[in-house]
Write a protein that binds this DNA or RNA. Structure first.
Lengths: 243, 243
DNA sequence: CGTCGGGTTGATAACTTTCAAATTTCGTGG
DNA sequence: CCACGAAATTTGAAAGTTATCAACCCGACG
């Protein structure tokens, strides 16, 4: 085992038990470390993409814009997450990626990625796994928007976010720091910003949680889980699935 | 090249140029061919899954049920599509799969799948690709539910379905046969069945399309594309992306 | 025939958006 | 440290969209 593992290696290791050879191949994948300022898109819809990124610090969101101008945020990425894998696979980006805060990310050139896959099949499988977990999150998001009302949706979203942050050491059972504005929340949940505001107030008045000053504080975890019908099994599992 | 390719091999071949060796490895993947009657679930949420399936004929849907009882259909699968890949990767199913019509599908045991991945890395990459295309469809679905009103949503959905069916030779520019009930449509689009009915009537009254007696007939393709803000680039590309 | 799963329609209720305006927060330069 | 402007949050009222409830129709099928 290498002494220090990157968050990304740790994540893949949760799916596939990785050998030292594979771990160091992973390390070599990392290209230049880049810094992006908040607000300016890293990737544009339709742009051809030669690199993916692995997020080291900061938050980003991936979203799609419609010609009408409205946008839907598909997901937020937090440290350890892979950015733009799909864009690399398809050569061109089908979505935008915007840093919400300042962001540090390591570039992973497409060429290196494919070469590594062909020599280290287990790594390809591990990435397939990670991609599938991402898909599971998108599916859960879809269910949320399709079949939960605004309040349940918000509760579910914040619970999921909290669970993910806890996995990478950025949150606890009582809350977490959250740089998302109500506009971002609205675009993620398919609501208007005004309604997001009202829903947050209701959750506060119900003594379920408080989201103020960039801080989410959970007052009644059980109440939230009940309200949101939250089931976190899709987020975690114990130990590598492939040995 | 093998004389006859399965729909699945054809689909993977669109992503990665496959050698004869790889093609015959794919063929060996196919296990027993099974037949499922309409209506009885093939896979249940929470069930442990040892096999995936490749759909040979018929339609199925994957959906999630909430404890409240409402359900959200995540996607419909048509011949050539992979079923339950995520369930196999995670050992347990996070969604249900229900045949809408009678269905024929080939079983793919998890063990064989992983063995094939480890000896044929390019196949693993190809499957990663196919999984990513599926994710792109889920993302588009998410955008539809989050940011399109009922009419746009329906138009977009039927356009996408038509495009997919055309790819496997089951539809044309003027329409396609469609076994979906208004209840299924409602669960897929996050609407009530009653509203689906109204929306279909509006589309008919606008001379855009007719959906009656299991047949979708497109009257005004351009009008629909305009209404739905439809962009099919995420569904197709020309030739294998990896040679 | 009678029933049952779809489909269709109208009336009403619920939820969410939009518009408009006030208030607070926060970073920056004086 | 304070003032200022921009961005974010908050609230009310009115309008719009979609759900729900309740009927009724129709064709398939035993």
């Amino acid at each position: 085992m290498l002494a220090v593992q990157s968050p990304f290696a740790r994540k893949l290791g949760a799916f596939v038990a990785l050998s030292d050879t594979e771990l160091s191949a992973l390390d070599r994948l990392y290209g230049r470390r880049k810094v992006f300022p908040a607000g300016r898109d890293i990737v544009h819809q339709g742009q051809s993409a030669q690199s993916a990124y692995i997020l080291a610090s900061g938050w980003v969101c991936s979203y799609k814009i419609q010609t009408s101008g409205s946008r839907q945020i598909v997901d937020f990425q937090i440290p350890g997450d892979f950015l733009g894998l799909r864009s690399v696979l398809f050569r061109t980006a089908d979505h935008n990626i915007e840093p919400i805060t300042q962001v540090e990310a390591s570039e992973v050139p497409a060429k290196d990625l494919f070469e590594t896959f062909s020599t280290m099949p287990r790594l390809a499988t591990a990435v397939l796994w990670a991609a599938s977990r991402d898909e599971a999150m998108v599916v859960e998001h879809l269910v949320g928007i399709g079949r939960r009302d605004a309040k349940e949706r918000m509760a579910h979203f914040l619970l999921e976010l909290g669970a993910r942050l806890k996995l990478v050491g950025l949150g606890s059972a009582t809350g977490f720091a959250c740089p998302l504005t109500q506009y971002l929340l609205a675009d993620a949940m398919g609501l208007s910003a005004v309604h997001v505001n009202r829903v947050l107030r209701e959750l506060r008045e119900d003594d379920l949680l408080t989201f103020q000053h960039g801080q989410v504080t959970i007052h009644d975890l059980d109440g939230l889980v009940l309200l949101a019908d939250f089931d976190k099994t899709y987020l975690d599992h114990d130990g590598p699935l492939l040995r």
